[in-house]
Simulated assay, not measured.
Amino acid sequence: MSAAPLVGYSSSGSEDESEAGVQTRPGSGARRRGQSPPPSQRFPVPDSVLNMFPGTEEGPEDDSAKHGGRVRTFPHERGNWATHVYIPYEAKEEFLDLLDLLLARAQTYVPRLVRMEAFHLSLSQSVVLRHHWILPFVQALKERMASFQRPETQLNVA
Rank of each mutant, 00 (worst) to 15 (best):
Y9E: 10
S64P: 15
P46H: 08
E57D: 11
Q41S: 04
Y9H: 15
G13E: 14
S14I: 06
G8W: 13
T73S: 00
V7P: 01
S36K: 06
V7N: 02
N80M: 09
V22Q: 14
G13C: 10
P5C: 12
P60H: 11
R25C: 13
F74Y: 12
H84C: 10
F95A: 01
E19I: 05
R32Y: 04
H67A: 07
E90C: 02
S18R: 12
S36D: 09
S12H: 09
R70C: 03
P88L: 05
K66C: 08
N51H: 14
V7Y: 04
S10W: 08
T83M: 09
S64W: 10
H76E: 15
P5S: 15
W81E: 10
E93N: 06
A20S: 15
R32C: 10
F95C: 01
F53T: 10
S64Y: 11
P75W: 11
G29T: 02
R72K: 10
A82C: 04
F53L: 12
L6P: 03
S40H: 15
G29V: 00
G27T: 01
Y89N: 01
V7W: 09
P54V: 03
S40T: 07
S12D: 12
H67F: 09
S28V: 01
S18H: 13
Q23V: 10
H84K: 02
R78W: 05
E15D: 15
P38M: 04
V85E: 02
E19F: 04
L50R: 15
Q23E: 03
T56R: 12
F95I: 02
R42V: 08
V22M: 10
F74E: 13
V49F: 09
E57N: 12
T56N: 15
E57M: 04
D16G: 03
R32F: 08
P39E: 11
